[in-house]
């Protein structure tokens, strides 16, 4: 991987589309994410948020368009190169929505050492990093527990520790607040603040509007047709109730709309725009 250019954005998406088994999952997304930014991707279930995150993490590759990370195009060829693979993986961390997917090892300890071990850190460094991660998240006592004996909140914290152990620059979160109790949620928001203070780039996919106002510098809204329908400041979007309702992000005024073509949708959005 080429030396990172400090001016170039962390991610740069150009007209990215993605199809899964001939079904559209994302359509024509163009976006820049700069270093230290906090971006929230809003969208209803099935709008393609998770897919977008997985593309940012180099797990899926665009069917059309291209993605650059740290100024270099990432595609299957890029990851074939061992050096590129490890370099990218060390920089970008992903916290999956379902902790059961993230926690696949026999014990919490095995889970936390997995990333540093596989990313090629020395044994002493692996131990140091794992211990620090457990300590920072206050879960040292869970070290020898198997993941199936953990509560939901504990699982989430362990999932964070697995990523914290390799301390990536960029953190991607998929539905991080789903099924968290209020106390765990506020703890998680503190954790996000710490990341931001340290200058980490944070991208969160969610449909939970409650964290948008505090946590986002910018908000991207995906429609149920897998298109980007808004990109802007959180306040403007949060106050636009009809818009949120249309995209299934608030519950009350859910209304279906017929199959519409690409063009119509944008007109539709502006029609619905709320005026102060």
């Amino acid at each position: 991987m080429k030396k990172q250019n400090s001016d170039s954005p962390v991610f740069e998406l150009e007209k990215v589309s993605y199809y899964y088994r001939n079904q559209q999952a994302l359509e024509d997304i163009s976006l820049k994410i700069s270093k230290g930014e906090r971006l929230i991707i809003l969208g209803a279930n099935g709008s393609g948020k998770s897919t977008l995150l997985k593309m940012l993490d180099g797990l899926y590759f665009p069917s059309k368009g291209s993605i650059k990370a740290f100024g270099v195009k990432i595609d299957a060829d890029f990851f074939q190169n061992e050096e590129n693979f490890y370099d990218f993986r060390k920089k970008v961390g992903f916290v999956f929505q379902d902790p059961d997917v993230q926690l696949f090892s026999p014990t919490v300890w095995d889970e936390v050492i997995f990333a540093p071990l596989h990313l090629g850190f020395s044994n002493s460094e692996v131990l140091r990093r794992a211990k620090t991660a457990l300590k920072l998240l206050d879960i040292e006592h869970l070290k020898n527990r198997p993941p199936y004996l953990l509560s939901g909140g504990e699982k989430k914290r362990v999932a964070l520790a697995t990523v914290l152990a390799f301390n990536p620059e960029v953190w991607l979160f998929d539905e991080p607040t789903a099924s968290l109790d209020p106390r765990s949620q506020s703890r998680f928001l503190d954790f996000l603040d710490t990341l931001s203070d340290r200058g980490n780039t944070v991208v969160i996919a969610t449909h939970d509007l409650s964290i948008v106002e505090d946590m986002a510098d910018r908000v991207l809204v995906l429609s149920e047709e897998h298109k980007m329908v808004r990109l802007g400041k959180p306040m403007n979007i949060l106050e636009d109730i009809p818009f949120l309702s249309k995209h299934n992000l608030v519950h009350d005024h859910r209304h279906k709309h017929k199959k519409e073509t690409h063009k119509h949708l944008h007109i539709h959005v502006t029609d619905h725009e709320h005026k102060d």
């Binding site: 696949f104 997995f114 990333a115 596989h118 090629g120 990523v163 390799f166």
Partner: peptide
């Protein structure tokens, strides 16, 4: 999904 999450954490 598990495969992706392993990959994401450096499994090759």
């Amino acid at each position: 999904e598990i495969y992706l999450s392993m990959q994401s954490r450096g499994y090759r």
